[in-house]
Amino acid sequence: MVLFGTLVNGVLIVVGSILGLFFTKIPERYKETVMHGIGLAVILIGLQMAFESDGIIIVLLSLLSGAIIGELIHLEEGLNRLGTWIGSKFTTTNDNFSVAQGFVTASLIFVIGAMSVIGALDSGIRGDHEILITKGVIDGFVALVLTTTLGFGVVFSVVPVVVYQGSIALFATQIEKWLPEAFLNGLITEVTAVGGLLIVAIGFNLLKVVTIRIGNLLPSIFTVALIYYIYYII
């Protein structure tokens, strides 16, 4: 079953989020310190991913083009409105922002990254779900901690996770017919690097060092494919 790993990942996020609801009464100072710890770990993970790049110019052009597209279409505002709309169906008006923040933050953390891409590709190409199941265990734990701080909006992140990873897995069942292995390996490396820098940005936001509109940088995950293709054929 091509989507088995993706579905397990989604279920573990939901379970982690539900468990996190039972720990929302933890004192704020504990939540703040735990969130700082997560922020530091997220930055480390992002840096490790970013250093995998073989072409910094590809990463730079991807981020620049992605940022321009994101700002033009106001992607982050749209994500926040989506989160707020979801929140309005379950909470009072005063809680909507918290739900949106939880949804957007968790979605970015769970969707962006090497494990999402590589795991989904493994599921589709080789029928190996080990990476996505491992990612699901990690995501479940992170969802638990995020829910104690950001609220139950975190649970809605399961939707983009399942759609994103499921789409890649389904696409991967046909990808080897179109793309040579060398190109595919190089593309995964550069996507990982771009995703790593976005994860670093998430860490900075969690630490409240600076406010980065990460949502408006998301198109870079897709523009890197076009830029790498041009680089590959030149």
Rank of each mutant, 00 (worst) to 15 (best):
V8S: 04
V8W: 04
V11M: 10
I13C: 06
L19R: 02
K25E: 14
K25R: 15
Y30N: 09
K31M: 07
E32V: 11
T33Y: 13
T33A: 14
M35F: 13
I43Q: 02
L47R: 00
Q48F: 12
F51V: 12
G70D: 09
H74E: 13
L79Q: 05
N80V: 09
W85A: 14
W85N: 11
G87F: 04
S88V: 10
T93A: 15
F97R: 13
S98A: 13
S98V: 12
G102V: 04
A106R: 01
I109R: 00
F110W: 02
I112G: 02
M115L: 14
L121V: 10
G127S: 08
G127K: 07
D139Y: 02
V142Y: 11
V145I: 15
L146Q: 04
T148V: 11
T149L: 05
G151D: 05
V154K: 08
F156M: 11
V158Y: 01
P160F: 01
V162M: 15
Q165W: 03
Q165E: 13
G166V: 07
L170V: 10
A172C: 09
E176Q: 14
K177F: 10
I188S: 03
T189P: 03
V194L: 10
V194Q: 10
L197K: 07
L197Q: 04
L207M: 15
L207Y: 05
T211M: 08
T211W: 09
R213K: 15
N216F: 05
F222T: 07
A225I: 15
Y231I: 06
